Amino acid sequence: MRGMDADRRDPPHPPARATAPPDRATARAVRLAAPAAVLAAVAGAFAYVGTVDPNEPGHYPVCPLLRFTGVHCPGCGGLRSAHAFVHGDLAAALQANALVVVGCLALAVLWTVWVVRAVRGRPLRIDLGPVHLWTLGVPVLVFTVVRNLPFGGWLHP
């Protein structure tokens, strides 16, 4: 009986090989994958908005807040602003929604910082405290209120 069990044993496994660490170029490519994917998505969205004119009715839904209340939200005119921005008309982009133009420029700076940190092998950390959130929120609130007052008509899209 014992001899039969010895014949049924599996042969010994070869020793496990240690995997070689990825080279620097591969590691850098892995770190840049997420920023590259975000850039591709944003470029695709801007390409679509640049191609399909939001000034022509029927291509995009109407802002529900504007439709039901007549109040312009902070994003109203954002697609028209992006369309003008893609076509290089900065004045029209600012007139459609200045907040979107400033936001796009701020996000471009943030994306650049992300890429630089990824190349250097450092993670992007964004720790927003209450002061930062108020610093971002108050201008958006002021922009929204002013554009809906009679003298803020120049901020309407």
Results as ranks from 00 to 15, higher is better:
residue 4 M to Q: 15
residue 143 F to W: 11
residue 123 P to I: 00
residue 41 A to G: 05
residue 100 V to M: 10
residue 77 G to V: 03
residue 5 D to L: 12
residue 113 V to L: 10
residue 98 A to T: 08
residue 21 P to E: 14
residue 35 P to V: 00
residue 138 V to L: 14
residue 33 A to S: 10
residue 22 P to V: 06
residue 155 L to P: 02
residue 144 T to H: 11
residue 139 P to I: 00
residue 91 A to D: 13
residue 2 R to N: 14
residue 119 V to Q: 13
residue 1 M to K: 14
residue 125 R to W: 08
residue 150 P to L: 01
residue 145 V to C: 04
residue 43 A to V: 11
residue 149 L to H: 14
residue 143 F to P: 02
residue 20 A to Q: 15
residue 22 P to H: 08
residue 109 V to S: 04
residue 129 G to F: 06
residue 121 G to T: 04
residue 100 V to C: 09
residue 8 R to N: 12
residue 96 A to D: 08
residue 22 P to A: 07
residue 116 V to G: 06
residue 148 N to R: 03
residue 125 R to G: 11
residue 107 L to P: 00
residue 70 G to Q: 01
residue 96 A to Q: 12
residue 92 A to Y: 06
residue 72 H to T: 05
residue 105 L to F: 15
residue 53 D to T: 07
residue 50 G to A: 03
residue 101 V to L: 09
residue 136 L to S: 05
residue 112 T to W: 14
residue 129 G to L: 04
residue 82 A to V: 09
residue 119 V to H: 08
residue 2 R to S: 13
residue 25 A to R: 12
residue 80 R to N: 10
residue 60 Y to E: 01
residue 8 R to W: 13
residue 110 L to G: 10
residue 122 R to M: 15
residue 119 V to W: 12
residue 95 Q to A: 15
residue 111 W to G: 00
residue 79 L to T: 07
residue 17 R to H: 11
residue 67 R to M: 01
residue 122 R to V: 09
residue 66 L to H: 09
residue 93 A to T: 03
residue 54 P to M: 02
residue 101 V to D: 10
residue 85 F to E: 08
residue 145 V to Q: 05
residue 113 V to G: 01
residue 106 A to T: 06
residue 148 N to H: 10
residue 148 N to I: 01
residue 68 F to T: 12
residue 104 C to E: 14
residue 140 V to P: 06
residue 69 T to C: 03
residue 36 A to N: 03
residue 125 R to C: 07
residue 14 P to V: 03
residue 128 L to Y: 05
residue 142 V to P: 02
residue 6 A to E: 15
residue 136 L to N: 07
residue 17 R to G: 05
residue 114 W to V: 05
residue 95 Q to E: 14
residue 33 A to G: 02
residue 66 L to F: 10
residue 150 P to H: 00
residue 118 A to P: 01
residue 140 V to R: 05
residue 76 C to V: 01
residue 89 D to M: 09
residue 7 D to K: 12
residue 39 L to N: 03
residue 20 A to N: 14
residue 52 V to Y: 11
residue 126 I to G: 00
residue 91 A to R: 15
residue 20 A to K: 13
residue 17 R to N: 06
residue 139 P to S: 05
residue 91 A to Y: 04
residue 142 V to D: 07
residue 65 L to N: 06
residue 33 A to R: 10
residue 24 R to N: 10
residue 16 A to R: 13
residue 57 P to D: 00
residue 126 I to V: 04
residue 102 V to M: 09
residue 95 Q to D: 15
residue 99 L to N: 03
residue 96 A to C: 11
residue 48 Y to D: 11
residue 6 A to M: 14
residue 39 L to R: 11
residue 95 Q to G: 14
residue 75 G to Y: 05
residue 136 L to M: 14
residue 113 V to N: 11
residue 41 A to N: 05
residue 151 F to P: 15
residue 59 H to T: 03
residue 60 Y to N: 02
residue 25 A to K: 04
residue 32 L to D: 00
residue 47 A to K: 13
residue 116 V to L: 08
